[in-house]
Design a protein around this nucleic acid. Sequence first.
DNA 1: GAAAAAAATACGTATGTATGGTTTTTTATT
DNA 2: AATAAAAAACCATACATACGTATTTTTTTC
Lengths: 206, 206
Amino acid sequence: MAFSDKQATPQKQAVKSERMRSAILDKAVGRLAELGYHATSIKKIAAEGGFSIGALQHHFPSKEELMVAVVEKALERAERYVLRFVERGHTNLGSVIEASWDEQINSPWYKAMLEIFVAARTDEALRARVAPAIERYSRETEARLSHLLAPETGGDKATFLLKVSRCMLGGFMVQDALAMPRAEISAFIRRWAEFLDANLKGNANG
Amino acid sequence: MAFSDKQATPQKQAVKSERMRSAILDKAVGRLAELGYHATSIKKIAAEGGFSIGALQHHFPSKEELMVAVVEKALERAERYVLRFVERGHTNLGSVIEASWDEQINSPWYKAMLEIFVAARTDEALRARVAPAIERYSRETEARLSHLLAPETGGDKATFLLKVSRCMLGGFMVQDALAMPRAEISAFIRRWAEFLDANLKGNANG
DNA sequence: GAAAAAAATACGTATGTATGGTTTTTTATT
DNA sequence: AATAAAAAACCATACATACGTATTTTTTTC
């Protein structure tokens, strides 16, 4: 018993630590999605999350460190989402995109990531930390998808249109969706999904 | 002489005022594009522009007022740009888009507008002021373009793909272009332009 | 001399981080 | 096995700085 205690307890700290880290990240994402980058402060995250500034600083020594961690976790989630879709056999891009609009783009994690991306455009140090994660995600996901998505068309065109769709949804949310009623938004997304499928089924060039 | 002076000068104040207004807007755009929304302060604009905070406050009583003015002027410029293109007879969307990437999306005015859009997502008051301008721009531009762009296809599909392109370029700049070498960026844009033209020349369904 | 424009300063608030102290968990010693 | 030392996790406060705006004063235009 004493023996097993000594072997079991050494993980207690690591578990607690990981739990706190995760809680901080969740709160950070919530605040970023709701308030935006420039209104999301370390103090607000701590206060609203119920943990101290000291604890936050211990796990993420600076705001930059925290933001990088958010992006990395958000990209992991996005990667898992797309792969899960494809591995289930949904090879038509249209339905993937239409579902992504609700479940991905409009999720707190994506919105938080977007805030950080925009901040990174004008923050050299932040961009240098974030860019590799984006690049890796983009490369790996596309490589894995290229032979899974619509294999009869070679996958190349599908991969291209997936990237286009990703950009399109992101830009749409930032620009147009800001001033558009819900019904129009989903109609627009649906039309794009239909356009995609029609374009991928018909021919194999591209 | 005194008489002619009195008649010539009554516009002096209005001219000066307009000049100052325009100078402030230009500096604001420059700072927004370079530093981002949260690092663009009234004080920095004033200091770097060489005018006092009082002058700035006189023309734009609040930061929100200034941001709204930037968006309105930016949208005017964007509208003029597209219309000029089409009125010159460039009816193939691909070339419009390819040129837009360099001349529009990567211009300070667009970058500044994007910063404000993103800020507006989480700033209810700002969004309420900005949304009508976006909506008007979107509506009017598309209405005027729908019968000018690729009229043989009915214009509807072309208008749709123009909107898609706008969103795509915006999202691309925010997300992917952040971590992409220049050569890859322009290759991607070119491929999209070619895809557009192929898609609009071939058939008229959509 | 009245009005508009521009300037200067002051105020309250919030930010990110550095610092020093407390508690909890782990490791080492006996 | 018990306990002391070390390390990791957590906490509270202080500091320098920057923000947007309100206020008051000066200058320019009419």
